[in-house]
Computed example of a mutant assay.
Amino acid sequence: MTRMRAPIGDFDEARPAPDCLDLLTPPVAEAVRTWTGPVPADQILYVDTDPAIADTAVFVEHHGADLLDASANCVVVAGKRGETVTLAACVVRSATRVDVNGVVRKHLGARKASFAPMDTATGDSGMEYGGITPLGLPADWPLLIDATVVDTLWVLIGSGRRRGKIIMPGKAFAQLPGAVVLEGLGIPTA
């Protein structure tokens, strides 16, 4: 098993995610196992982390302030138009929030958009709350990626579980199935 130093953060070690499939949820493991594209699968890295400090602010305090600019969150939103509900995943840098009522609602063609209920997000994705990642999401979900995520050299994001994180090149997010890169998806939190 290959062990290396993580390209960002203060972690004891990083391992190529293809060597850690047993530590990932089944949909994430399958996405890593079947990965194709210009960024090789061994550049998707897994770092073991304590689930008790999975939330961004505590995590950054523990593993390095540089992670705030290099980490992203994946949240599930529900867009509704009439009786039709569309689930979508949105990936934005951790220092921002998703523009649910602007960019997301418009992109989905929804009258109303909101964060999906936790049971829906976890049940439909097969991932744990607080660890949802864009790797391995249902194929019929739109995957909206903020352009600043793609422009970040290395990005830390959930692994599908609260324990563990994935680090991968920002440009790899654009090659995920169903990915649409959007300007302004993440807006400042202040």
Rank of each mutant, 00 (worst) to 15 (best):
3 R>H: 14
3 R>L: 14
4 M>V: 05
5 R>C: 09
7 P>K: 03
8 I>L: 12
8 I>H: 06
12 D>T: 12
12 D>C: 03
13 E>Q: 15
16 P>E: 11
16 P>M: 08
17 A>V: 06
17 A>Y: 07
18 P>G: 11
18 P>D: 14
19 D>C: 10
20 C>M: 15
23 L>Y: 09
23 L>T: 09
24 L>N: 02
28 V>M: 08
29 A>R: 00
30 E>M: 07
32 V>G: 02
32 V>M: 02
32 V>S: 02
37 G>W: 03
38 P>K: 13
40 P>V: 01
41 A>W: 03
42 D>G: 08
43 Q>K: 15
43 Q>A: 15
45 L>Q: 11
47 V>L: 11
47 V>K: 06
47 V>E: 12
48 D>G: 12
49 T>R: 06
49 T>G: 04
50 D>T: 07
51 P>M: 12
53 I>W: 13
54 A>V: 13
54 A>T: 12
55 D>S: 15
55 D>V: 13
57 A>P: 12
58 V>C: 07
59 F>W: 08
60 V>E: 09
61 E>N: 13
62 H>A: 14
62 H>M: 05
62 H>F: 11
63 H>P: 04
63 H>A: 06
63 H>T: 01
65 A>Q: 15
65 A>R: 15
66 D>W: 09
66 D>P: 04
67 L>M: 08
67 L>P: 03
68 L>D: 08
68 L>K: 08
69 D>K: 13
71 S>K: 06
73 N>V: 03
73 N>M: 11
73 N>K: 14
75 V>F: 11
76 V>P: 02
77 V>Q: 07
78 A>Q: 12
81 R>D: 14
81 R>C: 10
84 T>N: 13
85 V>F: 04
85 V>N: 04
86 T>N: 07
86 T>Q: 14
87 L>V: 05
88 A>K: 11
89 A>N: 10
90 C>D: 13
92 V>R: 11
93 R>G: 12
93 R>W: 00
93 R>Q: 14
93 R>M: 13
94 S>Q: 06
97 R>M: 13
97 R>S: 13
98 V>Y: 09
100 V>C: 07
100 V>W: 11
101 N>C: 01
104 V>C: 06
105 R>S: 03
105 R>K: 15
105 R>W: 11
106 K>A: 14
106 K>V: 12
107 H>E: 13
108 L>T: 02
109 G>P: 10
109 G>I: 04
111 R>Y: 05
112 K>Y: 07
112 K>G: 03
116 A>T: 10
116 A>R: 06
116 A>M: 03
120 T>H: 08
122 T>R: 02
124 D>W: 14
124 D>N: 11
124 D>K: 15
125 S>Q: 09
125 S>G: 08
126 G>N: 02
127 M>W: 01
127 M>G: 01
127 M>I: 00
128 E>L: 12
128 E>K: 03
130 G>C: 04
131 G>I: 01
131 G>P: 04
132 I>R: 01
132 I>C: 01
133 T>C: 10
133 T>R: 04
134 P>E: 05
134 P>N: 04
136 G>I: 00
136 G>Q: 00
138 P>Y: 02
138 P>V: 00
139 A>G: 13
139 A>N: 10
140 D>Q: 14
